[in-house]
Design a binder for these strands. Structure first.
Lengths: 258, 258
DNA sequence: GGATGGCCTTCCGATCAGTGGAAAGTCCAC
DNA sequence: GTGGACTTTCCACTGATCGGAAGGCCATCC
């Protein structure tokens, strides 16, 4: 474990100790995992607690604090987008009763910022805040297809992790898929992450008409008519784009669609 | 503005510059608002960007980064709670089509961690991540009523901000309200924040049977039968408690049924 | 064109905050 | 009582941090 020289780096290392697998830790644990001296850890952690980045419970264990929420919701993927998208996600959920997801792009990863799920909906691997490579997720493909050329180039050149036998892993396949997404205006991502699920995604445009997010719906592989989902997802994506002030969604350009 | 002496403090000061009113800032702005030298700001901000706490857009402006999401969702109010509560919030929304909110307590404040709202629902002041004093919000009262005695004492001794003519502001009134909440098992918070709205809230218990969160529904003052909302909110709260493993919410366990 | 002002970036020496070893304190289990 | 795991406090040394200063970039103004 490389110990960063700067204090800031040490703080980040400490915060990085927390994960889904280890949502809480005691002082020694933090010290060990971060590779810092106990006394140093103690002081830094105390400062983090004082500010609210961490909380300390009755057992002396540390958790991520609620103050970080206040910051996180200020991120571009959150501010405005979530608020405005929510009602449309609601609509989509109400019609389909399946998992509905909202994601933004961070480099070559799709970050899920909202998700609506029902009791009986199919279980998916993603949670809010989690990330998936753009090449392997419906939302990722929807966003990548309309990303700046340099990002697309980078994605084509980067190794693509394989999740299932159907995962796109070659530049050629990805290139073709992206072209198809641009042509159709939506993505059907078939068993790219898990063999039993399928997702339909569509891009969301912001006020400057660039694609800033994507919405998707995840359903079980069998028993759901994909054809009926596509219009619903596209409608929601369009509604959200309009709510964000996207020019192309305000007027109604009929691009070859009936 | 007092300049903190520690590096950690300076980092927090920098992050604290961002707010709902100022979701992005350039370097000089950060330097000015944080009261730090330009060169210092430059170095610290660069480190924050490197780690992902901040992002820098094409115009050279800084935003809160998406990495903070990954941390924020690990907070106790998020991890597990949101995931498990969502379906029940959905149910509540679907039945009522009003604003549904989920909150946790942080000291004497209620922090909203999830909210579902419809196109036509009444507008409320709260957003995800925002805070309200416990004495003035339905969710706050629901949580405070079952909080440790010391926290209740503290709340009774602290000054209570007045939002409207109906806001609880005296220890006596608060004490009585809390007793009522404990007796009834729910809260009707009538115009305590805004005169035109009313909320019904109920406490949610965790695996250790303590109250860890609260769910509420916010409706316009007029035209909605409160009587019909109470059972719905209580049912949802109970369902979430059960999903969290709260002993008191697990009804007569049927054992042996394979 | 040259001047001006705003903003960002880099450099560098003095200084002072940060580090970590060590020791003392706390708590629990055996 | 003893041992062990964890936390808290102390302190002297040191090297990371700070901020002034200088330079670069890019507008806008005269």
């Amino acid at each position: 474990m490389t110990t960063p020289k700067s204090v800031a780096g040490r703080l980040f290392t400490l915060l990085g100790v927390f994960s889904e697998q280890r949502p809480s830790a005691n002082l020694s644990e933090l010290s060990r995992c971060a590779g810092l001296a106990l006394s140093t850890t103690h002081r830094l952690v105390s400062e983090l607690v004082e500010w609210g980045a961490l909380d300390r419970d009755a057992d002396g264990r540390y958790h991520v604090g609620l103050r970080l929420w206040e910051l996180a919701v200020l991120s571009p993927g959150s501010l405005g987008l979530r608020e405005r998208a929510m009602p449309f996600l609601e609509d989509l959920y109400e019609v389909t009763h399946q998992n509905v997801q909202l994601a933004v792009r961070d480099g070559l990863e799709a970050v899920y910022v909202e998700r609506i799920s029902a009791h009986n909906a199919v279980n998916v691997v993603t949670r809010i805040g989690s990330r998936l490579p753009v090449h392997a997720s419906g939302v990722g493909l929807a966003m990548l297809a309309h990303a700046p050329a340099e990002d697309q180039e980078l994605a084509l050149r980067s190794p693509m992790r394989r999740f299932t036998s159907k995962t796109i892993t070659t530049p050629a396949a990805l290139r073709e898929k992206l072209a198809q997404v641009r042509r159709d205006g939506y993505v059907v991502s078939d068993a790219q992450i898990e063999l039993i699920t399928l997702s339909v995604a569509a891009p969301i445009r912001g006020a400057d008409d660039t694609v800033v997010a994507a919405v998707s719906i995840v359903v079980p592989q069998d028993g759901v008519a994909v054809g009926t989902l596509v219009p619903a997802v596209r409608t929601a994506a369009r509604g959200i784009s309009r709510a964000l002030g996207a020019p192309s969604a305000v007027r109604s350009p009929r691009r070859g669609a009936p």
